[in-house]
């Protein structure tokens, strides 16, 4: 097993895959963190802005919309990650592991 690990670790395709996957993971994480802490900071520093109605004639506020958007963002970015992983990473991963396991 150690040999296979070493062979995979010297495969440039593996490094490209690991880099691409971690870039996607960190980008999406940063997006969620940013959205959530923006929401938290708005609560702490701009509560009046959150309490403003979206438009005249409604009481639905910026804050409610922002909250719903954070929820929608969380679910959809999770979907984006799965979609990318299914479309790209799984196949590449299988190919790398198969080649390394077959090699002498």
């Amino acid at each position: 097993m150690e040999d296979i690990y070493r062979r995979i670790d010297t495969d440039p395709r593996f490094h490209a895959l690991a880099r691409a996957r971690s870039r996607l993971g960190w980008t999406l994480s940063a997006a969620v963190l940013l959205a959530y802490f923006a929401f938290i900071f708005a609560i702490a520093f701009a509560p009046d802005w959150l309490a403003q109605p979206l438009h005249a004639g409604t009481v639905v506020t910026t804050g409610i919309l922002a909250g719903v958007l954070v929820i929608v963002l969380c679910v959809s970015l999770t979907g984006v990650y799965i979609w990318q992983a299914n479309r790209r990473y799984d196949g590449q991963n299988r190919a790398i592991v198969d080649d390394a396991s077959r090699a002498p």
């Binding site: 996607l24 994480s29 969620v32 959530y36 969380c74």
Partner: peptide
């Protein structure tokens, strides 16, 4: 909710 996407990524 917000912990979940991080667990995923």
């Amino acid at each position: 909710l917000v912990g979940w996407p991080l667990i995923m990524f």
